[in-house]
Design a protein around this nucleic acid. Structure first.
Lengths: 242, 242
DNA sequence: CAGTGGTCTAGACCACTTT
DNA sequence: AAGTGGTCTAGACCACTGA
């Protein structure tokens, strides 16, 4: 419990999470912050940081004056919407062993909407990549990523089977920092329904999002559609001040 | 800048948010943490807490060694999914001045699914309340709340026009702490389509959720459906460790 | 009442960016 | 080299819970 990176807080968090999932705490009661600090040889502040994150994730809950406890309903969440990263990981978290099929890679001129989202001129070249994620032979998700061609070094097809964040790192040394996402309901039909293997008229969730890099510049515009019968998103909603 | 409650951190956060929205920072650059701490007469820790929350909300971003900056794309978010509370507030944040119509209040026996979610016996009485939220005469959202009858003190119809969290406080002195939510795509038809004023076959987002109180006990099961053409949800997705 | 979590401080050292 | 945010510490005081 001395090494840096991962940070002490992250180590404490991982350690506690492990003990929680192993059912190591009687009656779901977690030792007090003072006790944990002494036990792990770190300051109370570090313990509190770790506990705060676990609380935010829904793993535990705290009651002033009473104590800190395991939160069983929160443990049922497989993947939290605000934290999902690569779709491969999301699928793995749901117990799948996903595979990826590249449906197409094209270089096209950006239309007004894409140009605006990516802060590039209308008509500038963009790489459009369509992927299908499958579990066994069953399609689970359909994704379309649009990346400014100017960012790429190397052939668009290289690393195409990797997750978008890895693709961006390999091609342009940009690290994806966050997505700004809209949740859109759609009725599947035609090509999309066929690709996802559902009947026309099936409802699905679509994410319309823009990904930003470490310097807060837009680097990818993504649209992803999911089979609701195979993958359902969960999140925790809380009240916050201001 | 001395009073407790709201906490110093909350006051600092609100203060900075105001200055940010007023465009008070040149080039989007926010003063360093040290400067802010001196300026506002609080410790750097307090400043950092406030900045961390603003960063999490997408209002600002920070780059180690470089500084803290306003995040223009984040400012466009009207209401964040993880933070929405009463639907009235969500609608107001989108510029509406909502009204509520009670469609019905019934007392029914709980089926297996509801009983499980609310930790009550199958067949126990529950209050079922259906509400329609409108902007002018236009329906925007349809909500169905199910509350264990055993929790209520007083007539179910009392306070029915108030938001659920206020209803629960008034009737049972329970404060809603958080919702565990599932996002479900639906195709509207029949009664629901008619109530929401859309044609059969329109896609919509539905939230299936369970609300928990301050003691982490389930107190309400809710289903809410929204008109996508009038209300669209946004959120920030980030990578997190572990 | 003792013990818990909630808030806040002052200060140290580090990693990183910018000049 | 100077300045920035990132991490961590030790300690203080408060509000609240439960025996």
């Amino acid at each position: 419990m001395i090494a840096r990176n991962p940070s002490l807080t992250d180590q404490v968090k991982a350690h506690l999470k492990e003990r929680i999932h192993a059912g190591a705490f009687d009656e779901g009661r977690i030792p007090s912050e003072t006790v944990l600090a002494a036990e792990l040889g770190v300051s109370r502040t570090t313990i509190r940081d770790a506990l705060s994150r676990l609380e935010h994730e829904g793993t535990i809950y705290r009651r002033q004056g009473a104590g800190t406890f395991v939160n069983p309903p929160g443990l049922r969440i497989r993947s939290r919407l605000e934290e999902m990263w690569s779709y491969e990981d999301v699928l793995r978290a749901h117990g799948f062993t996903p595979s990826v099929r590249i449906l197409g890679i094209d270089t096209l001129p950006a239309d007004a909407s894409v140009a605006d989202d990516l802060s590039i001129p209308v008509g500038a070249s963009v790489i459009v990549m369509e992927k299908l994620f499958l579990e066994d032979a069953e399609p689970v998700a359909l994704a379309r990523n649009v990346i400014p061609a100017g960012l790429l070094r190397g052939e668009p097809a290289d690393h195409a089977e990797e997750p978008v964040f890895a693709y961006l790192e390999a091609h342009c040394d940009r690290r994806l920092a966050y997505y700004l996402s809209e949740i859109v309901p759609v009725v599947l039909g035609g090509v999309q329904a066929a690709r996802l293997g559902v009947v026309d008229g099936t409802a699905a969730i679509s994410f319309e999002e823009v990904g930003f890099d470490q310097d807060n510049e837009p680097v990818v515009r993504a649209t992803s559609i999911f089979r609701d019968d195979l993958l359902r998103f969960r999140l925790i909603r809380r009240k916050t001040g201001t």
